[in-house]
Amino acid sequence: MRQIILDTETTGLEPSQGHRIIEFAGLEMVDRKLTGRHLHLYMHPEREIDPDAERVHGISLDFLADKPKFHAVADELVDFISGAELIIHNAPFDVGFLNAEFSRLGIAPVDKLCALVTDTLRMARDTFPGKRNSLDALCDRFEIDRSNRTLHGALIDCELLAEVYLWMTRGQDSLLADAAGEDDAAAGSSVRMAFERKPLAVLPPSEEELAEHQAYLDLLDKSVKGTCLWRSIENPPLAEPAA
């Protein structure tokens, strides 16, 4: 299925209070690989930007002065996301803003335009209960480089979320394919580079590390809807007695 890694930046937190989208970014992914196709838009919100929101994303009304209003880019945005699965961190927030914008223009809501919406924040909370599961925290957990991210920007957040999503959904086949694929290695993704390890001294794992390992294997089992390869290696089936 075609997937769109999606993020927005807004004038505030509540579309019900008239807050608007000021930045949209989407990256296209097919067969777990970014295609290079993307859509990145800035929009004039026709209202002020809350100071707290501006401190987070750094987008000012002056910067948006010559940018198109949402209605002028709506068709392009709808064409880009239609029929795809949307991958969003804290999906209710972005979907709520998109639906509010669409409603103003008489456009169908996201659930009618798109095949599915996947919320990576909910996935992370299910996988790592009781832990911090912000995008920054997940990047740190998976050792994804976010050194270029000084402010919340929709496009760079999509790039980071794409890597986080691949980590969180790694099934047996995709894991092996990504580790061995020359095309993937050339792309230089930190998701794939994590498997290029030199021989290391063997140290006994701590109880916390063992728990993290089991949680990750549970995620792999869920992804492949069965028993992942690594559990089969750790617990090989008993050989049947000779007849």
Rank of each mutant, 00 (worst) to 15 (best):
M1A: 13
I5R: 06
L6D: 05
L6A: 09
T8H: 06
T11S: 08
G12D: 02
E14K: 07
P15H: 02
P15I: 06
R20F: 04
R20Y: 04
I21N: 03
I22H: 00
I22W: 02
E23R: 04
G26A: 10
L27S: 09
E28Q: 10
E28T: 04
D31A: 05
K33Y: 00
G36A: 00
R37D: 13
R37Q: 12
H38W: 09
H38T: 10
H40M: 10
L41S: 00
Y42Q: 14
H44A: 15
R47G: 12
E48Q: 14
I49F: 09
D50E: 15
R55N: 13
I59A: 12
I59M: 08
S60A: 09
D62C: 07
F63L: 12
F63D: 04
L64D: 07
A65P: 03
A65C: 07
P68I: 04
P68C: 02
K69C: 09
A72S: 11
A74K: 10
A74D: 01
D75A: 15
V78S: 06
V78I: 15
V78P: 00
I81Y: 01
S82P: 11
G83Y: 01
G83F: 02
A84S: 12
A84I: 02
A84R: 03
L86E: 02
I87S: 05
I88Q: 11
N90H: 09
G96S: 07
E101V: 06
E101N: 02
S103V: 01
S103L: 10
P109R: 06
P109Q: 08
V110D: 00
L113W: 05
C114K: 00
L116T: 13
T118D: 03
D119L: 01
D119G: 03
T120G: 10
R122Y: 13
M123K: 09
A124P: 05
A124L: 09
R125C: 13
D126V: 13
T127W: 15
F128T: 04
F128H: 11
P129G: 06
R132H: 13
N133F: 00
A137E: 09
A137N: 05
C139N: 13
R141V: 13
R146V: 12
N148V: 14
N148H: 14
N148G: 15
G153R: 15
G153S: 13
L155N: 09
I156Q: 07
D157Q: 08
D157K: 04
C158I: 11
C158M: 02
L160S: 01
L161S: 12
L161V: 05
A162V: 03
A162P: 05
E163V: 12
E163H: 06
Y165D: 08
Y165L: 04
T169V: 11
R170S: 09
D173M: 09
A177N: 08
D178P: 03
A179Y: 06
D184E: 15
A185F: 15
A187N: 07
A187C: 07
G188P: 11
G188Q: 11
V191S: 00
V191W: 07
E196T: 00
E196Y: 14
V202N: 03
L203W: 03
L203R: 13
L203C: 10
S206G: 11
E209G: 02
E209C: 01
A211Y: 06
A215S: 15
A215K: 15
Y216F: 15
Y216H: 12
L217I: 11
L217M: 07
D218F: 06
D218I: 06
S223M: 10
V224N: 04
V224P: 00
V224L: 03
L229C: 03
W230G: 01
N235I: 09
P236R: 11
A239Y: 14
E240C: 08
